[in-house]
């Protein structure tokens, strides 16, 4: 399984902070994103942002990165700390 996390306005819009997906069906970030977008129009629209950031196992990554079972993938909007 892969643990998927959402933060800030992304979590608020989706109404979900965490979910699990099957690693066989989600070999990389882009496929995972496509599968999540396929849930419904709201997910499709919310995850469509080009500025969406992704971290794998707590390190900033990108959409082409591969995934394996046990990974933690986080999606979030551009960060605004400091």
């Amino acid at each position: 399984m892969i643990k998927v996390l959402f933060f800030a306005q992304l979590r608020d819009k989706l109404g979900v902070s965490e979910l699990s997906v099957n690693s066989d069906e989600n070999p990389n970030v882009q496929v995972l994103l496509n599968n999540l977008k396929a849930k419904d129009n709201h997910w499709e629209k919310t995850l469509a942002s080009a500025s969406l950031m992704v971290a794998i196992n707590q390190t900033i990554s990108n959409k082409t990165a591969t995934l394996s079972s046990g990974d933690e993938v986080a999606f979030f909007p551009p960060v605004t700390g400091g």
Partner: peptide, 14 residues
Amino acid sequence: IMDYLKTQAPFWKK
């Protein structure tokens, strides 16, 4: 450090 923190560290302001 501040420039990187602003764009790479996972904080969000509300």
